[in-house]
Design a protein around this nucleic acid. Sequence first.
RNA 1: GGGCGAUUAGCUCAGUUGGUAGAGCGCAUCGUUUACACCGAUGAUGUCGGCGGUUCGAGCCCGUCAUCGCCCACCA
Length: 884
Amino acid sequence: MLEKTFNPKDVEERLYQTWEASGAFRAGNKPNAKPYTIVIPPPNVTGSLHIGHALNNTLQDILSRFERMRGRDVLWQPGMDHAGIATQLVVERKLAEAQTTRQALGRDEFIKRVWEWKAESGGAITKQLRRLGSSCDWSRERFTMDEGLSKAVLKVFVDLYREGLMYKANRLVNWDPRLQTAVSDLEVENIEIKGNLWHLKYPLAEDADLFIVVATTRPETMLADQAVAVHPDDERYKDLIGKKVRLPLTGRLVPIIADEYANPEKGSGAVKITPGHDFNDYEVGKRHGLAMPNILTLDAKIGVDAPEAYRGLDRFVARKKIVADMEALGLLEKVEPVVHAVPHDEKTKTVELEPMLTEQWYLNVKPLAEKALAAVHDGRTKFIPQRFEDEYFRWLEDIRPWCVSRQLWWGHQIPAWYDAQGNVFVAESEADAHAQANQKHGAEVALTRDPDVLDTWFSSALWPFSTMGWPVNTPEFKRYYKTDVLVTMFDIIFFWVARMMMMGLHFTNDVPFHTVYIHARVVDEKGMKMSKTKGNVIDPLTLIDEFGADALRFALAIAAAPGRDLRMGRNRVEVYRNFCTKLWNAARFCEMNNCVRPETFDPNSLRSAVNRWVVGELVRTKTETTASLDAFRFNDAATGLYEFVWNVYCDWYVEFIKPVLSGADGDEKTETRATAAWVLDEILRLMHPFVPFMTEELWRVTGEQGPARSKLLIEEAWPDYSAVARDVAAEAEMNWVKTLISEVRSVRAEMNVPPSSKLPLVLKTASANEREWLVRHNDLILRMARLETAVAGDNFAKGAAQIVAGDGTAALSLEGFIDFAKERARLTKDLKKADDEVARVDQKLNNKDFVAKAPEDVVQELRDKRVEHLSVRSKVQEALRRVE
RNA sequence: GGGCGAUUAGCUCAGUUGGUAGAGCGCAUCGUUUACACCGAUGAUGUCGGCGGUUCGAGCCCGUCAUCGCCCACCA
């Protein structure tokens, strides 16, 4: 028995456990089937499920369940990312609460604590993914810091080093002074802030009364100035090139140089050059062989190489002091307020990053990028929507070396060891490094390992194949790689997608996936990006608690236009909870009317038109749903199902069959019960990828009667209706019925008769004055009677006939009406088709411009067509007359 | 500065090769007659952002402008 309402809380957990225990999620269940693989974008181990995850995983789950039902051997590979910086920060915060620091614990102990923390709370997000219904193969869950994945990381690093692509270099890098680590170009967020452009006077060495004015937003860097640059063609400064200025505050002499980098239009036209603290100046410095001193410490304070007055000052304090000192010296010409973009850390957006000269590991990604570009250009991997390919191309075409080292503790430690002389030995193991060192030195020497770890995205880049056991050529790797589709968002195309493409192609010689589906970005109801600070975050778990996972999933799926913003709010989920309830109640209707699944059911042998019609609509819906999912049009698939369930099955079909089900027993009633139950069953299959919990529960309860179910719904097959003939006549009849009913509805409105929801019963429930009207319009009655005969058998017609005959104005013969209705529907349709064709042709031919401009043979062809259509038309018309 | 996306009913959005504008929510009126008030019926509401072009015909194609959003670059 079905409860009056569906209570998600009561069934979701139980059903999930049933599924998991059944082994339905496991890959390899169908060894002879074609594999279908999705690797999950691994959530951060520190993470908790947010609404974006909910969308991402709903879509993956829909695909997984759909393909599983279509008979594929599905591997949905789950796992988590160690998320270097994020995780380290979380654990450090915990340490701070315990009044200690990672430095106090030491590296090994700290790492141990991180693993402990991971063991404690690391499962949170996977539990939440389960609540959503995600059918991942949990037996294959991976973590980027697992032994196997770490081995893959080591091998990749060492191989790239041996190929000469991985190297160490001392360069200017984006430095986070708070975390004290390098970050990659991608992790820099430029934020516009209000600042000042200070115009500083630098006295010439030869004559302190003469000045050259430089403009800067960062006066504190003048302590490390190495030159003043002017444009070689700048008339104002031509004579000064080669002379020297005496830097105020430090008293150092630096040259005035000519370099095209100086832009005469900007500032004063002369620019101070600080190669150690600015990316452009760094290039200028290299060109002119300038020294590159660093006057900042790693936490962005003024360092020991600066004049004593400034040492130890924070960079912003030093800035104020330097401006004040310059002003006091009369060397501040003017201050101009400017808005300019300043690099910030991407995570908190609160720390200004500092260009810092440090030694880091770099990966020359250029050769890898070329392969990655080619693979998308030649279509081995395609993006949905396609426009993201352009972004991908743009980034890869202009790619710069990837700074892969991070000065953190949590992550994959770089497999490089140094001897006392600083020689580097890169190896997959310490023993191997020692072996290399021994060979070089001819004796055992002490080695120290590089303390740095790799960028988190380095291991993420290997995810599609490292999770399959690579570099070992495992059966899984052979079977499930390459994967089929990557479902992700546009914000990590560069961070992750492009890098997986590069690494995948380089190390496996194949693309990691043939399709990249870029899903929407979920924003709040006002279109604002969700963020904790704004307080507009919608918690998917709260929504699941309130409306059920099914409602949330359907709400996400039906709104899932790729690559755009998706506004999500509570009331949207409510709408689809209502839809789920509607389906539940349709099932209750069937149950109450003893619509039990028959032992066998042949959709082709149905006699009643309404049953044949609903089967046809079902077939159409299945075809469209399949096509939509094949094309990743989740919204179209969901919309089609919504409309079929609500507008076709509930609004029309259920209403139409009520009189039959309440009528006398007989073949028609038996047939209708069977059809109602069968179509409901098929709805459950089609809906299951979207709404897995409710459909599985309905599958279970409806299985309590009729033939026993052999499988869970999750294990069932996607419908195949190739043997079901679509009954065009039944569809035409139903369209006719619907048209007539709307005629009656408008008549009722005209007559001011209260509308009724049970319109197919209009004749039975007619009020006295309505009946009177109907009698007056006997013609319409007859038509209703005829069509209802065709649709629902004798019951309707009898009802109609009773009304009419009861008033003594008409009597009705029922014979021949079925054939009549069918034939008429077919002919009317043909007639309309012919009329449309003729009208279309006429429209063209009546257009003088067209006739004048179009080529002769085209016009003649249309004339011939017109004649042809007219002859068809007259034939059809004649046939129609005969029938009527 | 360069690029991309959006602009359709009060709100949120569909609209797949150009052919008479759609849904849900909301609103108004009515209705508890064998599933469902998390419901049913009916109804009102649109110069499809502006202007120009191509076409017999444009929400859809082209140009241009406007507003909003995103990405990249610059950062003296």
